[in-house]
Simulated assay, not measured.
Amino acid sequence: MKLTNEIMYQASLEKNPDFEGVYWMAVKTTGIFCRPICRARKPKRENVEFFLNTNDALEKGYRPCKVCKPLENLDATPPEIEQLLKEFSENSDVKIKDSDLVEKGLNPTKIRRWFIKNHGMSFQEFQRKLNLNEAFKKIQAGENIIETAYNAGFESLSGFNESFKNVFGVSPKNSKTQNIIDLKRIETPIGTMYAAATGNGICMLEFTDRKSLEKEFLELSKSLNAKIIIGENAHLKLLEKELSDYFEGKLKKFSVPLSPVGTEFQKSVWKVLEKIPYGEIWSYKKQAQILGDVKKVRAVANANGLNKISIVIPCHRVIGSNGKLTGYGGGIWRKQKLLELEKAILF
């Protein structure tokens, strides 16, 4: 599909989110440029022009819209919070109080609001969850429960036991029977993602604005009989490093261990996806042929849509037989950006 001015103008009239990140519309009469989903009143067709990146709009003298803020990733983690998360990642024993935030020049109330909005909990509760995650792993590794409780910042064993049971559903003494899934936010050039991993590998990598995310979390937790909790592990660290290298054009094949959750048929479809080389595009029909049954094209397409490990299991490399970019959970615009990055296809 060729991306014409008419298509872009109509998408802006409809505030179509599928075109987020694909183009920006500039208004000649006001001198501003906007996202496709901007809620500001839409100008006449003859008063607009379109750009495929923000730099071109800026170089031509347009200013970013104050309503839709086209230069910002609205879901991105602010730099000051990135720094806090980095401290936690590098030292699991670190504990940051409100007074420490003030010393760092940060507003505790602002930090608290961000964590409530993006993690559903306060900053202090986020830290407690991280500490409990680390304590859980230490106890499973055989470390002393009392010593672990005090190292996690709890002043009493009873308080530790109560908090532990509230999060994991079992007491520290009985935690050998419980499983956990570590969860982490990861920033990418095309949006913020949630990554989840067990000790076996990555089991989820999804964009935070995906509508079905809550449902996916529930299904993942149920399938693995595990609690999802904010945390870190070696697989997540490797994933973050490899994603960074991928978007910088330094990596073409991921090595991070994967542990996808699905039916045997779905897993077989995803295995075929992993075989698609960087920079190539396949059709659903070709996938079905490799699986040995060309009649399963629709079933293959459905399985692709249920892939919960975006980018690493590259369902973005599959397009329709007619050459069109078909549905993608993260949005068609992201599919296009990934293929452009891999120099596989352009509109």
Rank of each mutant, 00 (worst) to 15 (best):
Y246V: 06
G305M: 12
S92L: 01
T263V: 10
K275M: 02
I281G: 01
G105Q: 00
P17E: 11
G323L: 05
G169C: 11
K296H: 03
E14V: 06
I202L: 10
P108S: 00
S283N: 06
E90H: 09
S268V: 02
L339R: 05
A57V: 08
Q266I: 04
R210I: 11
Q10Y: 06
K252Y: 03
S255G: 08
S244E: 14
E125F: 04
L251G: 07
S310M: 13
S255H: 01
F136N: 09
L218A: 15
M204D: 03
I228D: 11
K110G: 02
A40S: 12
L341M: 10
T198A: 00
M121S: 07
K42H: 14
S158F: 04
V261A: 06
E274Y: 01
I319P: 02
N131E: 07
H316S: 10
Y9V: 03
K165A: 15
V94A: 01
L84K: 03
N302R: 09
N107W: 01
L220H: 07
E340C: 02
R35S: 15
L220M: 15
Y328N: 06
V94N: 01
A226G: 08
I186E: 03
I190R: 02
D209Y: 14
Y150W: 07
A76R: 15
N131G: 13
R334M: 07
C315K: 15
E87T: 06
T192Q: 11
G201H: 07
N179I: 00
V272F: 04
K97P: 03
F123L: 02
K252H: 12
L218S: 15
L239E: 14
N225M: 09
S283I: 12
R128F: 00
N322H: 08
E59K: 13
E216A: 07
L341N: 13
Y9H: 02
W24E: 08
S244T: 12
R45V: 13
A303C: 00
D75H: 13
I313V: 15
V27E: 12
S156C: 00
I7S: 06
E125S: 09
L13G: 03
H316F: 15
K165S: 14
D75E: 14
D182E: 15
E248G: 09
D98M: 04
N179E: 12
S92N: 04
Y62N: 08
F207E: 07
E14Y: 08
E125D: 11
I332S: 02
K184Q: 14
C68V: 12
W282S: 11
D293S: 10
F168E: 12
G320F: 05
E125P: 00
C38F: 10
L239F: 14
K173T: 05
F164P: 00
N73Y: 04
L213A: 07
I228A: 14
S223P: 10
G142F: 14
S175N: 10
G191W: 07
W270G: 09
C34D: 05
E125A: 06
K275Q: 05
D293W: 06
I145A: 11
G159T: 00
Q140S: 01
T54N: 10
D182Y: 05
S259M: 05
F115L: 02
R41L: 09
A76D: 11
G323R: 11
W24N: 13
L236N: 05
R39Y: 13
V48R: 02
N151D: 12
R113N: 13
K343C: 02
